[in-house]
Simulated assay, not measured.
Amino acid sequence: MLRQALLPIMGTILIGLLVLSAARFLIVFDLVLGNDQGLIIVARLLAAFVPHYLAFMLPLALYWGSYTTVRQLTVSSEVNILQATGSSVGRTFRALVVLGVVFAAINVAVVGWLQPMGRYTYRALAYKLENADFYLRVRDSTFMNVGPRTIFVEKINPDRHSFQKILIYEPLDKGGSMTIAAPRGNITKLGERLSLRLYDGQRLLIENGAEPDNVQSLNFDVIDVPVGNAVAPFRPRGEDEQELLMPELLAQNTALADASVADISSNAHKRLVIALSCLFLPLMAVALGVQSARKKNIYQSIIALLIVIIYHQLVEFAGDVGKELAIGPAALLWFTYGVFFATSVVLFYKTTTGIGTLPDRLSAALSRWGPAGDPLARLRGKPQTP
């Protein structure tokens, strides 16, 4: 059973990571273009983002792999054969429940430790590339932002350290601005800072935007414009709640620069609710996967896939709405989790102890309320038109 389930689970994880990493590759490729160690840096950036994707892919892969395994065994009548030998449905798929516990533990480690550390590592690498490697990111005839400045370089020399026809624009206080134009320049290092050294150019300064005609013009032979810090470290980890480890996140009771206490609470409990969904997803997969061996219901597969998407969207909705309510995001998130968990347990119990597929058992339950309560019975009893 485990061998049959692990193959689609690992395949789903691999395909998902490849697709999501391909989208991220387009973003990070622009950061490292021209760098001598471009491939190595791209690999480090993508590896730092893998835990973020893995946190979502683990529950999805577990659920879809369990569902397809159960569906394949029931359609091929292998479940009926096992039942004929005295093995119950619950015992047959007990390994999937154990696998859910293992995946839940792994995913808690991913969202609680690997994901925040990976996010901080990604941002630190991106910061270094954006600030220390200005000359690697510059493009011919392209405007680019370096801090508050906008820089335009018409031509880059083959050494990528010297340029021709440079224009720099920097907004100042009171609506003023400074514009520097030079026919040539090159990258220099002054102490810990990278500077763009310009030659034989002109600087135009407007100190007050209310007086645009008051322009100060200066012709210079050489001028240095800072464009990055070569060795300055990235900010400490933890200024963003997404970079906090799970123990730090749960213990954080004061607001951060860009996150309120409600935002921090929502982030912490949302991580746990997504990670611990692995506990009930195999139960739901078994309940939906067991079906008649004589008929294939494609709609049941579509519904099975939609359940994970609906659950994820409800968790996001509960986290956002809970921040505006007096009960807080934690209560609403765990209520959503509890509803899905209890529903999965009931459906799993009915599947392993009841008779027939899930639609048949739902129809039998509705029939207890009489013919008016069972729309499926009315549909089956309706005569077919020739």
Rank of each mutant, 00 (worst) to 15 (best):
L244P: 07
F280G: 00
P371R: 15
N267F: 06
M1H: 14
I355N: 10
L245E: 03
V315N: 07
G112E: 03
L332R: 04
W113D: 06
P183W: 01
A331N: 08
A126L: 02
T69V: 04
L20V: 00
Q313H: 15
L99I: 03
T351M: 09
F340V: 00
F348Y: 12
W64G: 11
I327H: 15
K155D: 09
E324N: 12
N208A: 10
L7W: 13
L288R: 00
G175M: 00
T85Q: 05
I27Q: 09
I156M: 11
Q300I: 04
N208S: 15
G356S: 05
Y337C: 02
L196D: 00
L347H: 05
D360F: 07
I81P: 01
L204T: 15
L283N: 01
A23L: 10
I298T: 08
M1R: 12
H52N: 12
P359W: 11
K382L: 12
I327A: 15
W64Q: 15
G86D: 11
L39H: 11
I27T: 06
L14A: 04
N157E: 14
V19A: 11
M117Q: 10
D200A: 02
R139K: 07
L314N: 06
G354N: 03
G11R: 00
Y169W: 10
F234N: 13
R149K: 13
A377C: 04
R123F: 02
L283T: 00
G118N: 05
N157L: 07
R139F: 15
L205V: 08
A95D: 14
L31K: 01
F152I: 05
L376K: 15
Y120S: 10
D224A: 07
G328T: 05
T385K: 10
F56Y: 12
T357S: 15
A5P: 01
A22K: 11
N80S: 15
V215A: 03
I302N: 07
E243N: 07
S292P: 10
G289L: 01
P359S: 04
I13V: 06
V108S: 02
R361S: 07
I168P: 01
T92L: 11
L33Y: 13
D213N: 13
P371D: 13
E211R: 08
W64C: 09
G112P: 05
S344Y: 00
Q291M: 03
P236M: 10
S87I: 15
S87F: 13
R271I: 06
V42L: 02
A287S: 02
L17R: 02
V111D: 03
V138Y: 01
A268N: 05
Q300C: 03
Q202I: 14
N107H: 04
E154A: 02
E207G: 04
L167D: 09
G16R: 07
V19F: 09
G86W: 10
P8L: 02
P116K: 05
A232I: 10
L20Y: 12
L376S: 13
N131F: 01
T150I: 07
M57N: 03
G147Y: 06
P8F: 03
E248V: 12
I310P: 08
V290L: 09
D140W: 04
A47Q: 04
A377Q: 08
K189W: 06
R149M: 10
M117A: 13
A342Q: 09
G16S: 07
